[in-house]
Design a protein around this nucleic acid. Structure first.
Length: 577
RNA sequence: CGGGGUGUAGCGCAGCCUGGUAGCGCGCUUCGUUCGGGACGAAGAGGUCGUGAGUUCAAAUCUCGCCACCCCGACCA
């Protein structure tokens, strides 16, 4: 490709709308153009990268035995009502009516469509297992799109769905996808980590995220240095005892006046009793019922764990008015004693003796409170947010450490959640209709592209892993007016094309420095320069984007050397991470 | 949706407080000199100042409404 005839609007200044480095560099190198908040055009350069990633994904999915298809973006309301998610999806889903006043949505995901395909076309156990995938545009009306391609409303996603006859087979399909994803992200040259994850809205019982390690990531990952355990903070577990202390003394609680105390921290310093000896009491609205939730005073609640325990789709912190209605005191002076609804307590609470909590009376607290004597817990559960430094819940040997990550892939074992709600069955060997065991597997293609930049850049621009670079080689004649130089460059350009090497030819009449800056910004892995100085000695210059030094190579050896370097770079992405 | 901020040429910004000819740098066009890490000179092109009302002899500037975009919090690939 000649740069003079390629649409690639490069910018010297960083557009003010971009905050994170990947967004800035994609705008500056002319890879994307925003149309509206969270909606982007992939310009030619960006589209080449997107296609590279797409092809790696496609090759690996095919290698894993999955079959590609293509489902519609526009989906009728009916199938969403069948799965019960038309209401559940809320504002995330864009809805509209067609000319006949029928409701449709822009597909935020495709479980509903694929399940219908399966129920219509997979009738016998003999057809299983099957794994169907597509690479296609999704639309989710995100509350807050941000960071360019990192969280956009319209985005390209690879989604795959596996159908199996038994849960054992389904777990094999899941494992197969795990291997496939590992290969995909390795081939993209990314440093990543597979972590245990919360299943959220999608549902199911087992799930892992593939997280690209980067400081700008929106997710927190906790991992154990002693074993292989790693999890999203939302899911992370630490050691705790499930023993419930039984006390056989009478209530010895004492009410104390605590003027000005509004938080556990205040209470700890006022009463001179450390935070871990307090209960943190919170109230949540689960549907329309208000529940009381307790964790140790120095802890935070993990709302997604709590949501699982309560098994509810909507969960919100209760408002001040709700709290006053429930216990007669505002937040800051509340406790479980006297509350008449359900009380959910973290396991830590079961171990605490003579604790402090609010008295449900403005600016009063109880000391020497004991569960089982002063109040009864409805259910003990694991609902605290684990933090760095907590002991690994798997091996119990080391404290967990914390990293930031970008979620580029997510795999779920779903069981029969969707097949049941949509009545999708096949006939088993005995002729009995049986629900499919399903799994679903997603990769954010554009997000993978953005995270590759987050991980691979320097002050001059992007440093693409060669496997996903828009071009493998950038060829720059340093003086277009010198006949020898331009002729030699053109010949080399033709030779590279003949070898099927993807080359961008900087054929504009710019000065050398400008061309170097352009090529660095674009992040092309191999830079080849032809200049009059080198040509006098029959040499050209070759420089790798991630290295400092340019080396001189004789003109005769140039092509071989470039091919060799390219192959070496490719090998690196296959084996790295 | 709540809180904070910004809208002036393709990009980055100044001008606004204190109303009176719309400016600077980069990029773009032409010519010349340059030419191995964002050259220099000369001459140009390019703007309904986000938008609608209002105040005024006069509005980029003051007032009100609306819209868009960005950042911080609840979603998720």
């Amino acid at each position: 490709m000649k740069i003079s005839t390629f649409l690639m609007p490069m910018l010297r200044d960083t557009p003010s709308e971009a905050e994170v480095i990947s967004h800035q560099l994609m705008l500056r190198s002319g890879m994307i153009k925003k149309l509206s908040s969270g909606v982007f055009t992939y310009l030619p350069l960006g589209y080449r990268v997107l296609r590279k990633i797409e092809n790696i994904v496609r090759e690996e999915m095919n290698r894993a035995g999955a079959i590609e298809l293509h489902m519609p973006v526009m989906q009728p309301k009916e199938i969403w009502e069948e799965s019960g998610r038309w209401d559940q999806m809320g504002h995330l889903m864009v809805r509209f009516k067609d000319r006949n006043q029928r409701w449709f949505c822009l597909g935020p995901t495709h479980e509903e469509v694929i399940t219908q395909i399966a129920s219509h076309h997979l009738q016998s156990y003999k057809q299983l297992p099957v794994n169907l995938y597509q690479i296609q545009t999704k639309f989710r009306d995100e509350i807050r799109p941000r960071f360019g391609l990192m969280r956009s409303r319209e985005f390209l996603m690879k989604d795959a769905y596996s159908f199996d006859a038994t849960s054992k087979a389904a777990k094999e399909s899941y494992e197969n996808m795990f291997q496939s994803y590992t290969r995909i992200f390795q081939r993209c040259g990314l440093g990543f980590r597979a972590v245990e994850a919360q299943t959220g809205n999608i549902g199911g019982s087992l799930s892992q995220e593939f997280q690209v390690l980067a400081n700008s990531g929106e997710d927190e990952i906790l991992s154990c240095p002693s074993c292989t355990y790693a999890a999203n903070v939302e899911k992370a577990e630490t050691l705790f005892s499930e023993e419930i202390q039984k006390f056989n003394f009478k209530s010895r609680k004492k009410k104390v006046h605590t003027p000005g105390v509004r938080s556990v921290k205040d209470g700890a310093s006022f009463l001179k009793i450390p935070e871990p000896k307090h209960y943190k009491t919170l109230f949540y609205k689960a549907y329309d019922k208000t529940v009381c939730v307790l964790v140790k005073g120095d802890r935070q609640i993990n709302e997604s764990k709590l949501q699982q325990v309560l098994n509810c789709a909507s969960l919100m912190l209760a408002t001040e008015a709700d709290v006053i209605k429930a216990v007669g005191a505002p937040p800051g002076s509340t406790g479980p004693i006297g509350f008449e609804g359900e009380i959910y307590a973290d396991w830590d609470i079961a171990q605490m003796e003579d604790a402090v909590c609010g008295a449900n009376e403005l600016e009063h607290h109880f000391t020497h409170v004991n569960q089982g004597i002063d109040f009864k817990v409805t259910m003990f559960c694991d609902i605290k947010l684990v933090k760095a430094g907590d002991v690994c819940g798997r091996c119990g040997k080391s404290p967990l450490s914390s990293h930031r990550g970008i979620e580029v892939g997510h795999i779920f074992y779903l069981g029969d959640k969707y097949s049941k709600s949509m009545k999708a069955t096949f006939l088993d060997p005995s002729g009995k209709p049986t629900y499919f065991e399903m799994g679903c597997y997603g990769i954010g293609v554009g997000r993978t592209m953005a995270s590759a930049i987050e991980q691979n850049h320097d002050e001059n621009g992007i440093i693409w892993p060669i496997s996903i670079a828009p071009f493998e080689v950038a060829l720059a004649p340093l003086n277009m007016n010198d006949e020898n130089v331009s002729q030699c460059a053109f010949e080399l350009y033709q030779k590279l094309l003949d070898q099927n090497i993807e080359v961008i030819f900087h054929d504009k009449d710019d000065r050398a420095g400008v061309k170097f800056k352009d090529i660095d910004l674009m992040g092309i892995p191999i830079r080849v320069t032809v200049g009059s100085r080198g040509l006098a000695n029959h040499t050209i210059g070759i420089k790798l984007r991630h290295e400092k030094e340019e080396k001189e190579v004789s003109l005769d050896q140039a092509l071989l050397e470039i091919i060799k370097l390219r192959d070496e770079l490719f090998k690196k992405t296959h084996s790295s991470a």
